[in-house]
């Protein structure tokens, strides 16, 4: 904690703001593009023959908000559950479960998200809930795997030194293990979130309304302009989030 405070003092506010320039630029571009209505002339070039070239069934800001909400909720749950499970199985009491959990994490990765989504629908019904569950399950695995790897790669001497200094098990976890493993854990969360931003579009097939909606409508009606609109916004969202994570990682 102390070292970051020192760093912050050494770097001028302007330079600090500049480091966030790339993610902020993507974010700005994303918000600008959500005002698709202004770009009608551009999409007219792609689809000159159809009447409606801009998706208007619901506003892009609303769809974007829904998309972020779904990915956000699923990712938050995945982080809590994934990091929690990985911490639990690396404690002495839960160590028995470690082989099973790491095997599960690698098996779960082979489950295609579409299939998980399809299996969630009979249980949870149509709407936003099945896509959250599918994203949660799919996003859990990179987080569990990276947290296990991050905690596992800490040398035993570090543990011993911390214990020797009189730290309790909780202190070792909070002040030694988690800070040391943080970059690897963060990388796992980054993978999980960026995959989920793209996968969430599938939710439109089970009645969840998000940025996948224009894409599905575009495919059904053969309107490429709709598809482009959905794809561009999802792509920009993924780029904004990904570059934000990159910043966080480089600082850590």
């Amino acid at each position: 904690m102390k070292s970051t405070a020192l760093d912050a003092r050494r770097i001028t506010p302007l330079a600090r703001a500049r480091r966030w320039l790339t993610p902020l630029a993507w974010l700005a571009l994303l918000l600008l593009s959500a005002g698709m209505g202004q770009l009608e002339w551009l999409f007219r070039l792609i689809e000159p023959d159809v009447r409606a070239v801009v998706y208007r069934r619901s506003g892009f800001f609303a769809l974007l908000g829904q998309h972020i909400l779904v990915v956000g909720v699923a990712s938050l749950l995945a982080v809590v559950l994934g990091v929690g499970a990985a911490i639990a199985v690396t404690r002495p009491a839960g160590r028995d479960f470690l082989p099973l959990v790491s095997q599960l994490a690698s098996i779960g990765q082979t489950f295609p998200p579409v299939a998980v989504l399809a299996l969630a629908v009979p249980v949870l019904g149509f709407g936003t809930l099945p896509i959250i569950v599918a994203l949660l399950l799919y996003g859990l695995l990179p987080i569990v795997r990276n947290t296990l790897a991050g905690i596992g790669s800490i040398p035993a001497e570090v543990h011993e030194a911390a214990r020797g200094m009189g730290m309790t098990a909780g202190q070792v976890l909070r002040q030694v293990e988690l800070p040391l493993a943080a970059p690897v854990i963060l990388a796992g969360i980054r993978t999980s979130v960026t995959i989920n931003i793209a996968t969430a579009a599938l939710g439109a097939t089970v009645g969840a309304s998000n940025l996948g909606d224009p894409i599905i409508t575009g495919i059904v009606n053969g309107n490429t302009a709709y598809i482009v609109q959905g794809a561009v916004l999802i792509g920009l969202l993924a780029l904004a989030v990904d570059s934000g994570f990159e910043r966080l990682l480089r600082r850590g």
């Binding site: 996948g212 495919i219 490429t224 598809i227 959905g230 999802i234 993924a238």
Partner: peptide, 14 residues
């Protein structure tokens, strides 16, 4: 890879 699969399929249609 950042383009959602659904969109890439769609974009190739036209």
């Amino acid at each position: 890879q950042t383009i959602p699969s659904l969109a890439l399929f769609g974009l190739l249609l036209a």
